[in-house]
Amino acid sequence: MVDQNYEGEVFYLEFEDEDGNKQFFTEDVILEHEGQEYAVLVHVQDEEHEGQDDTYMILARIEINEEGVEEYVPLDEEDEHFETLVNLYESLDEEE
Rank of each mutant, 00 (worst) to 15 (best):
E18I: 14
E80Y: 12
E71F: 00
E47P: 05
I62N: 00
E37A: 02
Y38Q: 02
D93T: 10
L75A: 06
E66K: 11
Q45W: 09
V44M: 15
E94T: 06
H81Y: 07
L31P: 02
L13G: 04
F15K: 06
F24A: 03
F82A: 04
T84Q: 10
A39F: 01
L92A: 05
K22P: 04
E50N: 15
G51A: 08
H49G: 06
D17R: 13
G8L: 07
R61Y: 01
V40Y: 01
E48F: 12
V42N: 05
M57F: 08
K22V: 06
E47V: 09
Y89L: 08
I30N: 04
E66R: 08
L59T: 02
L88R: 11
A39P: 02
T55Q: 14
S91L: 09
E96C: 03
G51N: 13
H43F: 13
E83L: 07
G68Q: 00
L41Y: 01
S91Q: 14
E50D: 12
N5C: 06
N65D: 11
T26F: 03
E9D: 10
I62R: 00
H49P: 05
D53K: 09
Q36F: 07
H81Q: 06
L92Q: 12
L75S: 05
N21K: 15
H43N: 11
Y38A: 03
N87Q: 14
D54Q: 13
Q52M: 14
